[in-house]
Amino acid sequence: MAIPVHPMWGPYPRLQSDLQSVLQVIESHLQIHDKRIEATIKELVYSGGKLLRPAYTLLCAQIGDASNHDKERSIAVAAALETLHMATLIHDDVIDEADFRHGAPTVHTQQGNQFAIYSGDYLFCVCFTILSKYARTLAHLEFNARSMEKILTGELDQLHARYQIGTSIKDYLARISGKTAQLFAVSCYSGAITSQATRRQTMLAWSMGHYIGMAFQIIDDVLDFKGDFNTVRKPTLADIRQGIYTLPLIYALREQPEKLSPYLNKKADLTDDELMEVLAIVEQTKGIEKSKRLARKYIDKALKSLSKLPDGDYKETLYELTTMLLDRKM
């Protein structure tokens, strides 16, 4: 029986079927003696995440010559990267002390931090178990290991940056480059590698994925200020509550540091009313608008990289998915 995937993939039946196969591959590798951990991880697999990263892997696996397309390999690599993503989500939620993920309680809130960390570590192992079977070369496996290091470094940078009022735009962009953009870039690059695309094409896929990831995280951070819970699936202004200062607030701090600093210096003691006052300052200084404009620039860069890739049906789908990021119906 196929595992259901997010309804956004309904208009793309072939991709929808392949994404179901991705989840089946992940599920087939979850064999843990501790059935409580196995059940918790399977619940995460079934949680209805959008599976954007494996979707980009599968689409980029069509960049090379069609005669080289290895569907089983591309699905397996997509599964490995989604497993890596799930592992980082579990660890990320522990670090951020987040209570919800996709509208449901996070692993650590239900089972505790130790249990959550072990679950994330297990998923890292599953990722490399799958990659060891399907990565085309040892270099590709090593590349993914280095990429994981950059992702984890980005998470560590975010932890160190908590409640840091002096965070610059450059610091923020460097942080999300590792935290989010790296995995989008690796997803696109790995898909291209499985298709035996040329070196130039794989690097274009990497660049496209990087720019997509940058835009995705900026829009995600914007939604923390203005998003609806049904879309974002977490409380509004959750980042500020946790001391994570993202681009809209950083823009506002450049304009009105004297107004914002007294609030932010209260750290976790900010009241709901004070948070609303912070939001008002961010809106007055157009921090949200400026962030959206920067996200648009990254999307434009991604589409420019996409335009240089070989023609094919996959390309139209990539264009649609990437332009939809700004609209955030996903």
Rank of each mutant, 00 (worst) to 15 (best):
220 D>E: 13
247 L>V: 08
226 K>H: 06
235 P>T: 11
246 T>Q: 04
233 R>Q: 15
221 D>Q: 12
231 T>Y: 05
307 S>K: 12
226 K>Q: 13
302 A>V: 00
182 Q>W: 00
206 W>K: 04
259 K>I: 06
210 H>M: 04
210 H>D: 01
212 I>D: 00
213 G>F: 03
186 V>N: 07
270 L>H: 10
198 T>N: 01
192 A>T: 10
192 A>F: 07
265 N>C: 13
321 L>M: 15
178 G>H: 09
305 S>R: 03
189 Y>W: 08
296 R>D: 12
220 D>W: 06
239 D>C: 13
229 F>E: 11
280 A>M: 12
310 P>I: 00
305 S>G: 01
248 P>K: 13
272 D>W: 04
264 L>P: 13
209 G>P: 00
307 S>R: 12
234 K>T: 08
284 Q>P: 02
325 L>D: 08
287 G>Q: 06
179 K>P: 14
194 T>V: 13
228 D>G: 08
193 I>S: 08
288 I>D: 08
256 Q>K: 15
300 D>Q: 11
257 P>C: 07
234 K>E: 06
270 L>S: 12
257 P>Y: 07
322 T>F: 05
235 P>Y: 10
192 A>E: 10
317 T>A: 05
261 S>Q: 15
207 S>K: 07
317 T>E: 12
187 S>D: 00
287 G>V: 05
256 Q>F: 06
